[in-house]
């Protein structure tokens, strides 16, 4: 599909890191759910793994500018976001699929994705094309004019991904994107993520270790608000070895790395 590139898309980045956090702490309620995290991320697919309550969703929400950091610094696309009131410039470049993705049931897929494009300040003349492209990329072209309420769970999830990518974001945050997708759709999504990874900083929070191994360029393992491990999927698989708990090397790697981290934390 041919489209006109905007000047901003071909201009060189003026920042070193798409996401740069130093000592980032974020509260979820009273609890410090993200506790002094350092992150430097650029284009690629970054998998976020960790047990329930590790702070994955809180981190993603902070990166989506929904939550304000409690302390530390957070730079998105070279601009500090904590303390700033006007986040419009960064928000235009963010795509976000929340864990709990709500939608207006009476809107059609096209209307809903178009509505989000408007909210993300996609220039008016680009909206129809951007919407069509986003819907095609998630494989919902045939359902584009169906009401949201008629979609199956997997289709709703894909519509959620379509709205997240409709503005060609530089930072794409997907919280549990594979929930409700069948194996075929998950493969399709992974392919899409790999395609986006060339120029987008994609963060995928998930419970599914397999997804991370299959689609991610690197893995971050979170535990109790801290970064327990960071490496490539190959490192994760290697850590797992041939035997132990879990059905695959990657799953074994996940639980071994988590246990190792917890024991060193206790000693400290």
């Amino acid at each position: 599909m041919v489209r006109v590139l905007r000047a901003g898309e071909v201009a060189p980045d003026s920042y070193a890191w798409a996401i740069h956090a130093q000592g980032l702490s974020v509260r979820a309620g009273r609890k410090l759910a993200v506790d002094g995290m350092d992150l430097c991320l650029n284009a690629g697919v970054h998998g976020l793994l960790g047990p329930n309550g590790a702070g994955k969703t809180t981190l993603v929400r902070a990166l989506a500018t929904v939550l304000r950091p409690a302390s530390g610094s957070l730079e998105l696309l070279g601009q500090r976001v904590n303390g700033r009131l006007d986040l419009r410039a960064q928000r235009r470049q963010i795509g976000y699929l929340p864990q709990e993705f709500g939608f207006y049931p009476r809107f059609t897929v096209r209307e809903f994705v178009g509505y989000l494009a408007w909210l993300k300040e996609v220039p008016k003349r680009d909206v129809p094309g951007a919407v069509q492209r986003a819907i095609e990329r998630v494989g919902l072209a045939d359902q584009a004019d169906d009401r949201m309420k008629t979609l199956s769970g997997g289709m709703v999830r894909r519509a959620g991904i379509a709205q997240a990518i409709v503005n060609d974001p530089r930072i794409l945050l997907l919280d549990e994107p594979t929930v409700g997708l069948d194996p075929d759709q998950r493969m399709h999504l992974r392919a899409l993520l790999r395609e986006l990874a060339s120029d987008t900083c994609v963060i995928v929070s998930t419970h599914l270790v397999e997804d991370v191994v299959a689609a991610c360029t690197d893995v971050m393992l979170l535990d109790a608000g801290r970064l327990a491990f960071r490496g490539t999927p190959a490192d994760l698989v290697a850590a797992g070895g041939e035997s132990g708990l879990g059905d695959s090397p990657a799953e074994r790697g996940y639980s071994i790395l988590l246990r190792q981290y917890r024991s060193t934390e206790v000693h400290r």
């Binding site: 929904v66 928000r91 993705f101 709500g102 993300k120």
Partner: peptide, 10 residues
């Protein structure tokens, strides 16, 4: 939809 709205630019 409040969560998603909170992340948008408009």
């Amino acid at each position: 939809l409040e969560e998603l709205m909170a992340s948008t630019a408009l």
